[in-house]
Design a protein around this nucleic acid. Sequence first.
DNA 1: ACAAAAGTGTTAGATCTACACCCATGT
DNA 2: ACATGGGTGTAGATCTAACACTTTTGT
Lengths: 234, 234
Amino acid sequence: MKISDIQKLVASYPRVPLTVDCVVFGFDENALKVLLIESDISVFEGKWTLLGDFVQDNETLDAAAHRIFRERTGMSDIYLEQVRAFSDPVRHPGGRVITMAYCSLVNIRHHTLRKLDNSLHWHTVHEVTDMAFDHQEIVQVCYTWLQRRIQEHPLGINLLPDKFSLRELQNLYEAILDVRLDRRNFRKKFFSMDFLIDTGEYEDDVPHRPGRLYKFDFDKFEKKKRKWIGIDFA
Amino acid sequence: MKISDIQKLVASYPRVPLTVDCVVFGFDENALKVLLIESDISVFEGKWTLLGDFVQDNETLDAAAHRIFRERTGMSDIYLEQVRAFSDPVRHPGGRVITMAYCSLVNIRHHTLRKLDNSLHWHTVHEVTDMAFDHQEIVQVCYTWLQRRIQEHPLGINLLPDKFSLRELQNLYEAILDVRLDRRNFRKKFFSMDFLIDTGEYEDDVPHRPGRLYKFDFDKFEKKKRKWIGIDFA
DNA sequence: ACAAAAGTGTTAGATCTACACCCATGT
DNA sequence: ACATGGGTGTAGATCTAACACTTTTGT
């Protein structure tokens, strides 16, 4: 028996409240930060939450994530990527709410130029605690996701200014991966990938020899279709 | 102003119909297959769809995926992983429906031992066409996801019998990645990772010298916490 | 005996790692 | 002049890629 009134079928099924939560990472003073807002819910008084909101009827999840980010921070044109859904039936005290976590990376300097809701604050990722809902877990999952992701994709560059020195880039990787890397090997690695564009400019206002400033050639990166055959489970 | 009646707040927000679709991969005759069912919806007469269903009120998405898989195939205890959500507001002719895609890997031989709904069929991934909804895109995204994932995680082993020869394993990788690999190097690679357990048994019913059969040591794999520092964008 | 795939080592090239000194700038 | 980080090269170890022959089984 075929189903002909599909509208009716869809209408008959359970619907769930669906939210998007943005885990917004920034990089400042050589530490990875996450942007949080004070909870406006009584039961979570004094706790911090991610930037989130319910999904509207006529928008994609990506669009919802961009909208939420824009509404809360005034910024647009930022890097956002879906990470995963959190769907424990009792994760939200108001009842069943499923949320899709998005990871976002912004340059913290651009960000602070904007007028912001003053309940927004940057928190060092390693020191975040006292979060509402399951947001602690969401931050942790996104952080782990980011650690993997920056090793195979240059998304981390979004945390830096347009023009950046190799020192800044290395500090970024060291902070996120929580390792110490050899400076010469790090440079060789990035130069050999051949995605850095030398701007010819130099750092300014540094109390030592200024470093060269580079941009990242995202177009070139996108064009190089990567076959990447290299099985390795370790 | 704090929000105190959080139940009421949640109740006031839009709800969306949410489904889970399982992309079930199998491996047979050296080709990657995907398990599809004939659509029971009039507008998609003659088209194929993934195994999907609406999410119930009190289950996680993972639980929904397992339930759907069990209901349709009779199997449990299978490998399932969340891939990503598809949320185009017009992806479903019955109205706004968001779906979460899950990738599942099963051994096609175990599978066919069960009595199955006879509208279920295995299709060669490269030849799938004429699918309902956006399921073609979902299959494509999951296939691409799988190609990456099997290079860093041994989930592909779930497509093989418990005991398998290295030839079978190599055929699997060659089929999924669509490349040709050197046999000796492939063996060296897997032996050096040291996750294969030699069962001491051999293939049977092959018209040539039988190969040794191995099991994969998933416990050992899980224990080896992988640091995996190796930046590489290419 | 033949067909078919199993099993096995070596070498050259590429990549990775570890490591130390001089240079340019601000104070 | 000195303190600070910028910039550079090399050698040894490791990993990767390319390559051919003998062995075992079924027919």
